[in-house]
Every structure is written in structure tokens, then in C-alpha cells.
């Protein structure tokens, strides 16, 4: 905060020097534009900071998702889940920073800056929730965890605003459309999980997943084109994922009756390779 102010004043000095050359520093128009300059710069700075935080959120969420994919072939799942939970806690701290930046602002004014990060977070958190509970996390549940208690002291903004009585409550609301887009991304992860669990000889998970995916797919078809534009784009990918999962279940069902269980894994190892290369093209 302090550093930024320093930059601003040095820039102003530069402008003042330039103006003396042109000799028009007293003009009301120029004076007005100086105010505009400050206002615009403050806005742009805030936007850039939000973009940066959003990028960090994206990276950390992606890492969590990768970690969660290991669940399928690690004996001790609880440990992995705990680690993921820990990582997500870190992500939540970052979202807290976003909420901090947006305090007193119109959330929609800067929405474009942080929407990718939030979507990725929704994806990660709902993936974890699915692995734990085999159900879809609701928007309320996500939002309930994005409540921050800010103690004064370490927080420069709170102390600048005056003596805050105790802790301040700060909330961040994920918008319904961000939630929707995050869930749409989740289906891609579930498809991957399905394929890899087949590869591990897990017979039950694929069927559960296909059912769950079908529910989500029905939900998206129900929403149809009332949603934002991006939803319809993601619906296409969703359909592809669903197709792959259904194919896998079909194959399991057909071949499951004729191949002994211990050999199924071998059948599907070749199949996964095929599907993965398929996905790489798409």
C-alpha cells in the first residue's frame, strides 16, 4: 500500500515537470484529468492485483486436483485427502485476499479478473467433496467456507480504517454462474477418475460415476441456454466426458461377465491408453 502511493507521487512529479514545459498547468481541464488519472490508476492497479491472486488460486487448485487423482491408486486415501484439504485451506486464504480487495467495491466490476481462479477452486473443492461424500457440493456449502474473520494488526487496511472492534467478518460469494462453470469442469475430472479407476480394477466406481455424471448432465440440460454463454460451450465437453464414462461402463458390463476379474485390469489398461490419446486430440 505504502509503496504504491510512493510510485503515484513520483509519477505526478514527472507530469508536473512536463507540464511546466508546455506551460498549461493552471488549466482546469488538465486539473480535472489529473483527478481522472488517479482514479483510473487506482482501478487498474486493483484489477492487476486481483488477476495475480486469481492466477495463484488457479495454480494451487490445479495442483490439488492432481493430488486428488492419486487417490485411485494409493492405499491410504485418507492421507491424500487430508493433504488436499490442507492445500485448499491455503487457496481459501488467497480467496480471502480477493475478498479483502473487494471490500466496499462492486464485486461485478472486477469479476473478470478473478473468475478463472474461482472456477478452478470450485472444481477442486467439489472434486474433493465428491471423493469424500459421493455427492455434489452445493453453492451454499462452498460459500459457507469462504467466511473470514479478520483480526486487526497484521492487516494494513483494517488498521487504516480505524480501531476495529475485535475481528471483522468478511465473506466472499461465489456467483451461481461461476459455480456452474466450475461444476462443468468437475465432470472432466470425474471422467478421468473413472477411467483410471477402471485401470486399477475398481469395478464399482465407474458405475457410481456414470450415474452421478448423468445427473449432472440432466441438470445442465435443464438449465439449457438460460445460463451464461460459456455454459453451452462446456455442455459439449460434458457430453463427450459422459460418453466416455458410459462406454467404459458398457465395456465393463459386457466383458465383466466373460473375463475373470483379475484379468479385467489388463483389458482396461489398453483401453485407457486409447481414451487418453483420444482426449489429447480433443
Amino acid at each position: 500500500m505504502k509503496k504504491r502511493e510512493g510510485e503515484g507521487s513520483s509519477r505526478k512529479n514527472g507530469d508536473a515537470a512536463r507540464e511546466q514545459n508546455t506551460g498549461s498547468c493552471s488549466s482546469p481541464v488538465v486539473a480535472a484529468f489529473k483527478v481522472f488519472q488517479q482514479e483510473l490508476d487506482t482501478k487498474h492497479d486493483k484489477y492487476e492485483r486481483l488477476v495475480k491472486i486469481s492466477r495463484d488460486i488457479t495454480i494451487e487448485s490445479k495442483r490439488t486436483i492432481f493430488l486428488l487423482h492419486r487417490v485411485t491408486n494409493v492405499p491410504n486415501t485418507e492421507e491424500v485427502l487430508k493433504e488436499a484439504e490442507l492445500k485448499l485451506e491455503g487457496v481459501r486464504q488467497k480467496i480471502g485476499q480477493v475478498a479483502e480487495e473487494l471490500r466496499g467495491e462492486d464485486i461485478h466490476q472486477f469479476h473478470r479478473a478473478f473468475t478463472p481462479g474461482i472456477q478452478e477452486y470450485v472444481e477442486a473443492v467439489s472434486f474433493l467433496h465428491y471423493i469424500r461424500h459421493r455427492s455434489l457440493i452445493s453453492l451454499e456449502e462452498i460459500n459457507a467456507r469462504l467466511v473470514y474473520m479478520r483480526a486487526e494488526g497484521g492487516d494494513p487496511k483494517a488498521s487504516a480504517e480505524g480501531p476495529a472492534p475485535g475481528a471483522q467478518v468478511l465473506t466472499f460469494h461465489v456467483t451461481p454462474s461461476d459455480y456452474l462453470l466450475g461444476v462443468a469442469d468437475l465432470t472432466g475430472e470425474l471422467m478421468r477418475m473413472c477411467i483410471s479407476s477402471v485401470g486399477n480394477g475398481d469395478i464399482d466406481t465407474p458405475f457410481q460415476l456414470s450415474q452421478f455424471l448423468r445427473q449432472i448432465h440432466d441438470g445442465f440440460s435443464y438449465i439449457g441456454n438460460t445460463g451464461p454463454y460459456e455454459v453451452s460451450k462446456k455442455l459439449h465437453t460434458l457430453r463427450q466426458s459422459l460418453g466416455k464414462v458410459e462406454d467404459a461402463c458398457y465395456a465393463l458390463h459386457v466383458r465383466g461377465s466373460e473375463i475373470p476379474k483379475h484379468m479385467l485390469a489388463d483389458v482396461f489398461c489398453s483401453r485407457t491408453a486409447l481414451l487418453d490419446s483420444d482426449e489429447g486430440v480433443a
Binding site: S135, S138, L139, Y179, F212, G219, Y222, I223
Partner: peptide
């Protein structure tokens, strides 16, 4: 909350 309920909740929001 089931998946269907969740989606109809969101749908309500979107149409509003």
C-alpha cells in the same frame, strides 16, 4: 441436497 435440487435452485436464479 440432491443434484437435481441443486440445479433447479440455480435455474431459478438464472431465470430471475
Amino acid at each position: 441436497m440432491s443434484v437435481t435440487e441443486m440445479f433447479s435452485h440455480i435455474q431459478g436464479f438464472l431465470s430471475a
